[in-house]
Simulated scan of single mutants.
Amino acid sequence: TIAGRLVEDFVDEQLSNWYVRLCRRRFWKGEYEQDKIAAYQTLYECLETVVRLMAPISPFFSDEIFIQLNNVTGKHGEASVHHILFPAPKEEVIDRLLEERMALAQDASSLILSLRKKVNIKVRQPLSKALIPVFNPLMEQQLRKVEDLIKTEVNIKEMEYLTETEGFIKKKIKPNFVALGKKLGPKMKAVSSALQNFSQHEISLFEKEGRYSLPLNDEFVDLTLSEVEITSEDIPGWSVASKGSLTVALDINVTPELEQEGNAREFVNRIQKIRKDSDFALTDRIEVKVAAANGIAESLGKYNDYICAEILADKLEITSTIEDGVEIEVNDNPLKVIVIKKG
Rank of each mutant, 00 (worst) to 15 (best):
L216Q: 03
S110K: 11
W28T: 10
R25V: 08
A108T: 15
E99W: 01
D305E: 15
F61T: 14
Q106D: 08
N253R: 13
V72S: 01
N120W: 10
Y306H: 12
L214R: 01
P256L: 08
K117S: 12
C46L: 10
E207H: 03
A39I: 11
D107M: 11
H83K: 09
P256D: 07
F61W: 12
N263E: 04
E100C: 03
I322W: 07
A297E: 04
V81N: 02
R285Y: 10
L98I: 07
L300A: 03
E209Y: 07
L250Q: 02
L113E: 09
E323I: 08
E140D: 04
D277R: 07
K90A: 09
L214A: 04
I296D: 00
Q141R: 13
L300I: 06
D148N: 14
T73H: 08
I65G: 00
I156M: 03
Y32F: 15
S128M: 10
A309T: 15
I338K: 12
E8N: 13
M102T: 04
K145C: 04
P133W: 02
L300V: 08
E219N: 05
V288G: 01
V330M: 08
S192E: 13
A179H: 00
I328V: 15
D148I: 08
M159D: 01
S320R: 15
I112Q: 02
S80N: 07
V191M: 02
P175D: 00
F27R: 06
V221D: 01
Q41L: 13
E261I: 10
A291F: 05
N155L: 13
E298S: 10
P89T: 09
A241N: 10
E92S: 14
E329Y: 11
L184D: 02
G30K: 06
T163W: 12
M188A: 14
K75Q: 12
I94C: 00
I322K: 05
H82T: 03
Q41P: 01
L47E: 05
I235H: 07
